[in-house]
């Protein structure tokens, strides 16, 4: 065994430094992308199970023990299917659209810290990077709607574009609130500014912003009750109505990866990320990645719960909610928060 390790170390030393760097970076990318894709697979399983039990059904239970292999069965099925290009569709754009929506959903994970100093890239302006990357995802949706050469897909894309503009602003303002509180754009430092037990976290002074951020996040990921871009019963599947096989699966993957991402961001910005809610108590008070995953899990469960409970908004009602409710709320609260900052309200702003 040591023999092999020895060989490995000497082989590693023999390759040039830039290759070392390349391999190391690739390793980091894989270490993040693979778990993300796996958790997407099991998020779909969890969704079907959770909603199933809420609706007095059982959910998938045939493939593997209690249906645990169901996500893989789905993936294999989708891979076997033909990707149909609709007549007169722009083949190039049609093909590139799912990739465009998928790429930012995974790339944004690079700055997410899982534990102290535990992110793939410790970017100073991490929050800004995430905002920029998640905004890119919309291009995938618009391009797919345009390239499909279908009126249904086009309607879905138009709805999505309008919705994205409204909610991106509300979400941006909510993030400005966090930025003001933490005085930094680095996600790790945002968490460190909240250190302490749960009453030190930002969700208390920024309560309205938490709600706005989370609801906007649900809207941004096209989940019920805001899934007008897909609008299953109105425009069938909206922007991806013409997609089949793996191209469809990639859209699906992007949506779920985005769900996990926005939940992770919400837990980092408002719920103390890796911090334990019981700071100060031995053993369970220690910060760890487990706390972050738990918080992400709770927020994801909320999203699934929404889906099982609410009817779908109409497209113009969503716009009204975004422009006339959320943006004013965030604006007002930014001023309130400014007042908090001036008086150094403890324990958050002292």
């Amino acid at each position: 065994m040591q023999h092999f390790a020895g060989y490995f170390v000497s082989a590693w030393g023999a390759i040039p430094a830039w290759v070392q760097y390349l391999l190391f970076t690739l390793g980091k990318i894989l270490a993040i992308a693979v778990p993300v894709i796996l958790s997407v697979a099991y998020l779909t399983y969890a969704e079907r199970k959770v909603i199933g039990y809420m609706q007095s059904r059982i959910g998938p239970n045939r493939v593997g023990f209690r249906g645990l292999l169901q996500p893989f069965a789905d993936v294999i099925k989708l891979m076997m299917k033909e990707v149909v290009f609709p007549a007169n569709a722009n083949r190039y754009l049609f093909f590139i659209a799912p990739v465009l929506s998928m790429m930012p959903a995974i790339a944004a994970w690079v700055v997410v810290p899982f534990f102290p100093n535990g992110s793939a890239a410790n970017v100073n302006a991490g929050l800004l990077l995430i905002l920029a990357l998640t905004s890119l995802g919309i291009y995938g949706i618009i391009i797919s709607g345009w390239a499909s050469n279908s009126k249904y897909a086009f309607l879905g894309a138009m709805r999505s574009a309008a919705q994205m503009v409204a909610y991106e602003i509300a979400m941006g303002f909510a993030i400005v609130g966090v930025l003001m509180a933490a005085q930094t754009l680095n996600l790790g430092q945002i968490i460190q500014h909240q250190s302490g037990a749960f009453w030190h976290w930002y969700f208390i002074p920024l309560a309205p912003l938490v709600v706005v951020y989370f609801v906007s996040a649900v809207a941004e990921t096209n989940r019920l009750p805001f899934d007008v871009a897909e609008g299953e019963s109105e425009i069938v599947a909206g922007f991806h109505v013409e997609y089949s096989g793996m191209a469809f699966a990639v859209f699906f993957l992007a949506e779920y990866a985005n769900m996990i991402l926005v939940s992770a961001l919400a837990s980092i910005m408002f719920f103390g990320g890796w911090l334990s809610p019981f700071e100060g108590i031995p053993y369970i008070g220690a910060p760890s990645a487990g706390w972050l995953f738990l918080k992400i899990g709770i927020l994801l469960f909320l999203m699934l719960w929404f889906r099982a409970t609410f009817p779908r908004y109409r497209y113009d009602q969503i716009m009204r909610l975004g422009w006339k409710v959320f943006i004013p709320v965030t604006l007002v609260w930014i001023f309130v928060e400014g007042a908090f900052l001036i008086v150094h309200l403890p324990p958050w702003f002292s």
Partner: peptide, 10 residues
């Protein structure tokens, strides 16, 4: 049709 799918199963 309006999007509340749980009622359907109930």
């Amino acid at each position: 049709d309006v999007g509340a799918m749980t009622v359907f199963l109930y």
